[in-house]
């Protein structure tokens, strides 16, 4: 089982990224099961939100929130602090969207905003960071995301987001 914990602010698309990843896993093979859910509650733009992707095979019963994850993803570096390491399983990785550098082997930094502005022409970093996640999370390949993106995103933005995902995936860190 893989557990991915997403941190973002309302409007940044953390839950959409969680859904895309879980959907990609589900569409990849018949025996694959996945859940995607947000931290429940009223939706407020700018407020810290969490989202969860739980991927496995066979029955996937546990619908409770993920406390320790294989990957913890931050779409916004103002939400990142030392506490983040507490949420990591052993050998877990943090994917951090930031212009800064963090000197820790467990953290992969990506300047998602720059890529998002270049490709999507707006500072929405969720799909960019999803592409960066796939650099370290090998169970899902970049082509596995295509059916999920095409099903869950509107045709107007699907292709450009696939491009953003690929760009971030191929970007040197």
């Amino acid at each position: 089982m893989y557990e991915i914990l997403w941190h973002g602010r309302g409007g940044q698309g953390a839950f959409t990224a969680a859904k895309l990843l879980s959907a990609a896993w589900t569409f990849k093979a018949d025996e694959n099961k996945a859940l995607a859910f947000p931290s429940f509650g009223p939706e407020r733009r700018g407020a810290p939100v969490r989202a969860f992707s739980r991927l496995g095979s066979g029955s996937l019963g546990d619908r409770s929130q993920i406390k320790k994850a294989d990957y913890v993803v931050f779409l916004d570096d103002t939400l990142f602090d030392e506490q983040a390491y507490e949420e990591l399983k052993e050998n877990g990785k943090i994917i951090l969207c930031t212009k800064e550098k963090v000197n820790d082997d467990r953290v992969l930094c990506i300047d998602g905003q720059k890529i998002a502005l270049d490709i999507l022409k707006r500072p929405i970093t969720n799909t960019v960071v999803l592409g960066a996640l796939l650099k370290v999370f090998n169970a899902i390949k970049i082509e596995d995301l295509k059916p999920a993106v095409q099903k869950l995103m509107s045709p107007k933005i699907a292709d450009i987001n696939l491009e953003a995902i690929r760009f971030a995936y191929e970007e040197e860190v």
Partner: peptide, 10 residues
């Protein structure tokens, strides 16, 4: 509520 209504799966 939420654990089913707002949780996504195949």
């Amino acid at each position: 509520g939420f654990t089913l209504t707002h949780t996504y799966e195949a």
